[in-house]
Write a protein that binds this DNA or RNA. Structure first.
Lengths: 144, 144
DNA sequence: GCGCGGTAAGTTGTGCACAATTGAATTGTG
DNA sequence: CACAATTCAATTGTGCACAACTTACCGCGC
């Protein structure tokens, strides 16, 4: 009979735990902005460049329309974004920032510091962790 | 006006992406066992030692009864575990493995290899990643 | 022009996460 | 003993993730 793998040896569980712990640190800060973590990610993408189609948002974040459609509807209900059917291509929906949504970006600028402060790792270690994770994500997507 | 942080610089997003990519690699493998990833984690804990109370499971996995109660109900419906109210303390529920649940462990033994194979990282890098993530999770929990 | 494969967004259904609340059982304290 | 505070599991409600499906629309080939 083969041994069952041990929980405490699993990279996957370490990722899962760390990811949830990180969003838990962000949660109270984001609550001040009235955003959840995935909503914050969508706003980050739009603050860099807008308008964006649902598909483009999905590609940058790795999410599909099943996740994004209701999320965007909530952001619209909060008055942070507007969705407009594209004139040239009626299939597409362009997601625009409202002035309110745009102005939220300044309030969000200090957020990443919270993680860095709480991390207990040097900024070099954090930087190295980030690039390792990006390589890992890339490889896992190829495998999948 | 302050700059909005960039998505591609965020450790938190790298964690979030990597974690979802890792469970996506596990998903088809776990599907053969009829388990979701969180259900697999619960089974891992029980394969190491059982019976366990809901609270103990929650402490090891970082999940609360709001997540575990319905999850355990599903495992019970699949015939993998049994929940019994403790005699000494009627508040507690002891989660036992059924013979079916116990025998599943041999089928699960090869699963972590899938991640290692797909990771594109050496086993030393994976090991170092795991310990970095564990330190990070620890520190984030203290901050939270 | 017509059909048809392909594409974009939305919908439905399942299963986590997590906050907040509930209800029952136990423990601690006067 | 009485009873308030605590503990444990379950429940309720919201918001992701993700698979599977639907609907509307585009563009290509004929």
């Amino acid at each position: 009979m083969t041994e069952a793998p041990r929980l405490d040896r699993q990279v996957c569980f370490a990722l899962y735990s760390a990811s949830r712990a990180a969003t838990a640190v962000y949660r109270p800060v984001l609550e001040d902005l009235g955003l959840t973590y995935p909503q914050y990610l969508v706003m980050l993408v739009l603050w860099e460049s807008e308008p964006k189609g649902v598909k483009e948002l999905g590609e940058e974040l790795g999410l599909d329309s099943g996740t994004l459609s209701p999320l965007l509807k909530r952001l619209e209900a909060m008055g942070l974004v507007e969705r407009r059917r594209s004139g040239e291509d009626e299939r597409r929906v362009a997601v625009h920032l409202t002035p309110t949504g745009r102005s939220l970006s300044s309030k969000a600028s200090g957020i990443p510091r919270h993680l860095a402060d709480a991390a207990g790792l040097s900024s070099e270690e954090l930087e190295q962790l980030r690039t390792t994770l990006e390589r890992l994500t890339e490889a896992l997507h190829r495998a999948h």
